[in-house]
């Protein structure tokens, strides 16, 4: 079997601030293969976005400090790559989409020109994407890049793509802008796409379209996706796998169906119980008391223990290791049971 697309091993990250050094990622293990969509969920401040930014090495250092671990992208450790190599990778191996589509497009340039720039830059490393003979002139390459830009806009479902190339960002609606950003992230044919809350600012109907589009792209381009979101509903409908994060740890991970049907970690259960469903009776929503702990002085042992309804004295000693609770399904809880003994 070949190396996985992305493999994060025991990643530890700390961030320094006035208050001290916060241990924000506490041994992350994550493996993403081509064709998989991984949902990364958890409350804010759990390290979801930091994990995403770590993969593309976009955190300034200081304050960021990687204390241990590795981030392997098809066998190469992102933490050890020199800067120019990283930049090359970011453009065409890793694509990124952020939450706010307005601030990530330059308002002064036409959509088409921005897409063409990205395509030309990506073509420096991957000439194949432009579909023109080697040694082609500048104008020829530019024309090819423009055609590619139009194709991508069509691909992400923007009507009249050819004409829309000449529009400015402000002439697009929020959903359309997010589509443009997806097109921009995909134009270099990345192997890994990191989408950080791509639909949070959008209406539900637009959200559904964007997520469907994302799913289609994964199938077409055979890439891996990390979808960072706080919405378990989005994960349930879009992702193939899910990793639930709490206070810098992945507390539960596995195929979406398994995790959502049989959540083994109390945090995952609590998170799911916070979402009102059609059967939740008024006033009977089971919230989760408390909030994410301060990571400068994290609680000893299991970081979730102070909020956990099932915590015992044993939980206060030592960070629990992930326990296999099903096929590819693991939960980092000392009370989680191996599949043989678990009640199914």
């Amino acid at each position: 079997m070949t190396a996985p697309l992305l493999s994060i091993r025991d990643l530890h990250l700390s961030m320094s601030s006035y208050d001290g050094k916060a241990h924000v990622l506490n041994g992350i293990d994550l493996t993403v293969n081509r064709g998989e969509i991984w949902g990364l969920v958890g409350e804010s401040g759990c390290g979801k976005s930091l994990t995403g930014l770590s993969i593309s090495q976009l955190l300034p250092s200081p304050p960021a400090d990687y204390m241990a671990g590795e981030i392997m992208l098809e066998g190469r450790d992102m933490l050890k790559l020199p800067r120019p190599e990283l930049q090359k990778l970011r453009g065409n191996r890793i694509g990124m989409i952020f939450q706010d589509p307005t601030t990530n497009l330059n308002p002064a340039f036409r959509i088409g020109d921005q897409l063409v720039d990205v395509a030309l830059a990506a073509a420096r490393w991957k000439p194949g994407i432009l579909d023109c003979p080697p040694g082609a002139g500048r104008s020829e390459r530019k024309r090819a890049a423009r055609k590619l830009a139009r194709d991508m806009l069509e691909r992400v479902g923007i009507p009249d793509a050819g004409m829309r190339l000449d529009s400015y960002p402000h002439q697009f609606s929020g959903g359309m802008r997010q589509r443009v950003l997806i097109a921009m992230a995909l134009i270099g044919r990345p192997d890994l796409l990191i989408a950080d809350e791509p639909t949070t600012a959008l209406d539900v109907s637009v959200q559904a379209q964007i997520l469907k589009l994302l799913k289609g792209c994964v199938a077409d381009y055979d890439m891996g996706v990390i979808l960072i979101t706080h919405n378990l509903g989005v994960v349930a409908e879009t992702c193939s796998h899910v990793a639930v994060m709490y206070a810098g740890n992945i507390v539960e991970s596995g195929p979406v169906a398994a995790v959502i049907e049989r959540p083994e970690h109390p945090y995952t259960r609590a998170l799911m119980a916070s979402i009102p469903t059609r059967d939740t009776r008024r006033g009977m929503l089971r919230g989760l008391a408390g909030s994410v702990p301060n990571l400068i002085t994290p609680p000893p042992g299991c970081r979730f223990a102070p909020r956990c309804p099932h915590a015992t004295a044993a939980c206060m000693t030592g960070v629990p290791a992930p326990v296999r609770v099903g096929r590819d399904h693991a939960a980092a809880c000392i009370h989680a049971k191996e599949p043989e003994t678990a009640h199914v």
Binding site: S205, G233, A273
Partner: peptide, 25 residues
């Protein structure tokens, strides 16, 4: 929610991402 009358209501309810929560353990 059970019997939306208009197309828009049906579309909106359909677009709602939902999680089925298992009975409390």
């Amino acid at each position: 929610f059970d019997a939306p009358e208009t197309e828009y209501a049906r579309a909106l309810i359909g677009a709602m991402p939902e999680v089925k929560v298992p009975p409390a353990a």
